[in-house]
Nucleic acid binder design. Structure first.
Length: 605
DNA sequence: CAGACTATGATTGCATAC
DNA sequence: GTATGCAATCATAGTCTG
């Protein structure tokens, strides 16, 4: 006999999506949830706003100039510098943010749900949380200046369709184009301008967290505002709309990566305030599932992966929007995408903030503000020595040729400055921090340093995954049963724990013994109740075994895991063989097991 | 033998120039 | 449209050392 889901929580979950199969709520529900959001937890971020910029002396004039030529008012620039210091990226983000906010009719900063204090104040995470809680909600700092944001559409009206005309009207009223196009899609073609503006206002009010713009948008905005060609304008318009339209996997187009790579949204970027997606009927659970792998896989791999996971469109997200290191990953899941909230504190998102000790040694010509993807191997001592010699040989700033070489190597190996003319790979505990794990998570207990790098390099970025899983918190107040495949060092478990979602029964499958030990010892250290059941091979999980497990505690609420990327990852020079490769072909175990779980839980077996 | 250390490009997508 | 340059990338295999 097949059990219900967790008795307490399952009845709250609306798996029955009528015929529409809409996972997201309709407009009314969104409106009410916005109200809830606003009343449940005004967690005003407070901070000192980087005291580094108490004054703006003359030597900054060049720094300011670059923003003036982009068309920002000096007043805004001064404000942005005051809040962000001399970090050009952050200043530009802030300036774009001011513009968006000032253009929006509703300029109400919004709240985001609060975490359990017991979780967010965990000692493991509190030590770096004071440095990066910038106050981005200083309303009086939202200066006004002239609006030239959407003028590129103006001379196009004669050739535009009715929809485009509506979009143009609203854009001219100051509403961000992306939000208008979303509103038009959700409210329908017949929606009046008033309905659309109401919708957009509500959406803006519900937007959680700091409305930074992605850096990827900057050159585009600049480019477009200078552009007078109709072709490019139309192309831009199409791109804005393209991301929102429903796409089926077998319509001929291969899956392409979004730009910026923010999936259905990230807390640190102002994008479309809410999204709605339609899941294929067969994808609607139970259980919830969450699959992950590298975004930059060989051509066609994601199409194949998606075809085995109910043709769900992957959500591609770069973890650089969550931490100071890039991590471009694709996620296929059937989770709701509305009502997400991030783990607090928000981790530092620049190298400077994440590794403050490196600031002293960082040369001005090394313009990196983000680290690249944290991988499984580190740069060699010989390389750092070569770099030291190359930089040491010259007085002052090295010649361009040397700078280029050093920067190239630093980017390739994620080297950071740790002394005069001295670069070094990250330490394992720094990698742990960047990936959102507690310090020393992978330390000791029989694991070698080399294996620490390897296990960490193969792991989730916890904040990113937690953001996606956060929607489960309200659905399962009593906790969840998790089937964790390819668990590694327990990125999924750590994410759920940090979200404050109790782990009732965890069935964990992980080949590496040291990794299994890491997860087990982490559970003991954190005094978690509930059971942990280990397997070392996914192929052991057959129908009988799963049926027994499901019978014993009533089904899985979440099936989560990222299958091996060895044969997909770009760093692999030897055996990048695609999905059929030796390790990566284990992917097929994921849909196999997921289908079994689904069938058993629906009584189909 | 475990662990540390080191050398080893190709495949993508994108921007730009023509 | 085509050529070119640029940048990013959850790694593997061989060697050395204690």
């Amino acid at each position: 006999m097949v059990k219900n889901l967790s008795e307490e929580g399952s009845d709250k979950i609306d798996w029955d999506t009528e015929d529409e199969l809409e996972i997201q709520e309709i407009q009314d529900a969104i409106f009410s949830s916005c109200r809830d959001l606003r009343t449940t937890g005004q967690h005003a971020l407070s901070g000192d706003g980087e005291a580094s910029s108490s004054s703006v002396p003359c030597r900054l004039s060049k720094f300011i100039q670059q923003f003036v030529v982009m068309g920002f008012s000096e007043e805004s620039i001064a404000k942005a510098i005051e809040q962000n210091g001399e970090n050009s990226d952050l200043v530009l983000d802030a300036l774009l943010t001011f513009k968006v906010i000032e253009d929006s009719p509703a300029e109400q900063p919004t709240a985001s749900p609060q975490l359990d204090p017991s979780i967010s104040s965990d000692d493991s995470y509190s030590e770096y949380n004071e440095n990066f809680l910038d106050d981005v909600y200083e309303e009086e700092s939202w200066s006004s200046d002239s609006d030239n944001r959407i003028c590129y559409l103006k001379d196009e009206s004669s050739s535009l369709s009715e929809n485009e005309q509506t979009l143009l009207s609203l854009a001219n009223m100051g509403y961000p184009v992306e939000e208008v196009s979303i509103a038009m899609e959700i409210c329908g073609k017949e929606a009046s301008l008033a309905e659309l503006t109401d919708f957009i206002c509500a959406a803006q009010m519900s937007r959680a967290e700091d409305p930074y713009l992605p850096e990827d948008v900057k050159p585009k905005l600049k480019h477009i505002s200078n552009d007078s060609g109709g072709y490019k304008k139309r192309k831009m318009f199409n791109q804005l709309c393209k991301g929102k339209k429903q796409r089926t996997i077998f319509d001929g187009d291969p899956i392409s990566l979004p730009k910026p790579m923010i999936g259905f949204g990230v807390p640190t970027v102002s994008g479309p305030a809410m999204v709605r997606r339609t899941l294929p009927k067969k994808a609607v659970g139970p259980p919830f599932f969450y699959y992950e792998n590298v975004a930059l896989a060989p051509k066609g791999v994601w199409d194949r992966i998606a075809s085995h996971l109910y043709d769900i469109e992957p959500e591609f997200v770069d973890s650089k929007y969550f931490c100071a290191a890039a991590r471009k990953r694709g996620y296929i899941h059937n989770l709701p995408v509305e009502g997400r909230f991030p783990l607090l504190p928000l981790p530092p998102r620049t190298i400077n903030e994440a590794l403050p000790l490196s600031k002293r040694w960082w040369p001005s010509w090394d313009t990196r503000e983000h680290l690249n993807c944290l991988q499984t191997a580190i740069g060699s001592a010989r390389l750092t020595d070569r770099i030291r010699k190359a930089v040491e040989d010259v007085d002052g700033e090295p010649p361009m040729r040397v700078q280029k070489y050093v920067l190239e190597q630093c980017r390739k190996w994620n080297l950071v400055w740790v002394g005069r003319n001295k670069v070094a790979p990250l330490e394992p505990d720094e990698v742990e921090m960047l990936l959102g794990f507690p310090k020393n998570h992978t330390r000791g207990g029989g694991i070698s340093r080399t294996d620490r790098y390897k296990s960490l390099g193969n792991s989730f970025q916890v904040d990113t995954v937690a953001y996606h899983l956060s929607v489960l918190k309200d659905l399962y107040p009593e906790g969840i049963n998790v089937l964790s495949l390819f668990s590694g060092i327990g990125g999924a478990e750590v994410a759920l724990y940090r979200l404050g979602i109790p782990l009732k029964n965890v069935v964990s499958v992980e080949k590496s013994e040291v990794n299994r030990n890491i997860v087990r010892s982490w559970r003991e250290n954190t005094n978690q109740r509930g059971n942990l059941i280990d397997f070392d091979d996914v192929q052991q999980l057959n129908g009988d075994c799963l049926e027994q497990l499901i019978d014993s505690f009533g089904g899985f609420d979440l099936v989560i895991g990222g299958s091996p990327c060895n044969n997909l990852a770009g760093s692999n020079r030897v055996s990048r063989d695609g999905l059929e490769g030796k390790e990566s072909s284990l992917f097929f175990e994921y849909p196999r097991i997921l289908d079994l779980v689904k069938n058993i839980m629906s009584g189909g077996r």
